[in-house]
């Protein structure tokens, strides 16, 4: 019996693909970037380097760069580098990186289990992971304020297990409460991209490691963990970027204690509660620069990991 003939179809019709056609596919993305990134950033700059209406104290954006006034930014930088706002930045970075550590400690095992160990129950576990998204973030934080009250369930459980003798005032402005709140709020954002990366790891590599005599732990450390680094980095970036601008977690869980003030709280004050919106907008730009540095590090690391994986 002769084998059936295979018809090869050339989608280009024999002609080389037109570069402009392919470039056209980038247009929606470029448009999106311009509309939702470039223009907003420029608007923030126009407010930061603009002025304020002398009567109503509303911002008067300076759309013409030649008219930009850098005095608010200059005063702000003095406060950030060596002034009181420097402490707020250090505090924010500390909270965010502690919360990231918490997300890794909780999220990695969960993502690993769902991706590599759960088989039939995977779909259900994934559904459970996204379950928190069904409830508003603010509502979840409000729920925590009840759970963390002195007579709340958290204290009751801890006392029942004799972890504490006296109920703790979790909401009196201590940093652990804010960090716990950030971990709770953002850990689902961490798990999902990490799960995706772990799930894509070629199982044959792990089997090869085991066949060559590596223990489960060695296989994890020498194969799974290195291959999950890009996913880990992506999950970290997705998690920490919104954490840096977060202000409501702190507001809800500490009733506005100055000891836990984050950069987002200062931005909120200047933009919503003061007559100095240009200072708030300047703070947004300063934070963006810090985040840009982090993004560059992330891009360099992922590119390096990609190069190594292609060797």
């Amino acid at each position: 019996m002769s084998s059936p003939s295979v018809v090869q179809i050339d989608p280009t019709g024999g002609r080389p693909p037109r570069t402009t056609t392919w470039a056209g596919f980038a247009l929606p993305g470029v448009g999106w970037l311009i509309a939702f990134f470039v223009v907003p950033v420029y608007a923030v700059m126009a407010v930061a380097f603009g002025s304020v209406d002398p009567i109503l104290r509303t911002p008067q954006p300076a759309w013409n760069p030649l008219a930009w006034d850098f005095s608010a930014m200059s005063s702000l930088l003095d406060r950030v580098f060596g002034g009181d706002l420097g402490k707020v930045f250090i505090r924010t970075f500390s909270f965010v990186f502690l919360a990231l550590a918490g997300c890794i400690a909780i999220g990695y095992p969960v993502a690993y289990f769902v991706a590599r160990k759960a088989s039939r129950s995977r779909s259900m576990l994934l559904a459970l992971l996204v379950l928190p998204f069904w409830i508003s973030y603010l509502m979840r934080m409000l729920a925590w304020t009840n759970l963390l009250q002195q007579d709340g369930y958290v204290n009751q459980v801890l006392q029942w297990f004799q972890v504490m003798d006296e109920p703790r005032n979790w909401l009196d402005g201590d940093w652990p409460t804010v960090v716990i709140g950030l971990v709770y709020g953002y850990v689902p954002f961490f798990i999902l991209p990490l799960y995706s990366a772990l799930e894509r790891i070629d199982g044959r590599l792990i089997e090869a490691g085991r066949d060559l005599g590596a223990s489960s732990f060695q296989t994890f450390v020498r194969i799974t963990l290195p291959l999950s680094v890009p996913g880990l980095m992506a999950a970290s970036v997705i998690t920490i970027l919104p954490m840096f601008g977060d202000y409501y977690t702190n507001s809800y869980l500490t009733s506005g204690s100055p000891r836990t003030e984050m950069v987002g709280n200062q931005i909120e004050f200047f933009l919503r509660g003061s007559s100095q919106p240009q200072t708030g907008a300047s703070l947004v730009l300063v934070l963006m620069v810090f985040l840009f540095v982090l993004m560059v590090y992330y891009l360099r690391t992922t590119m390096k990991a990609q190069r190594e994986s292609e060797r």
Partner: peptide, 13 residues
């Protein structure tokens, strides 16, 4: 600019 600011930087801006 208003649309961009609304979506990118928030209502206060």
């Amino acid at each position: 600019a208003q649309l961009g600011v609304l979506l990118g930087a928030g209502i206060p801006l």
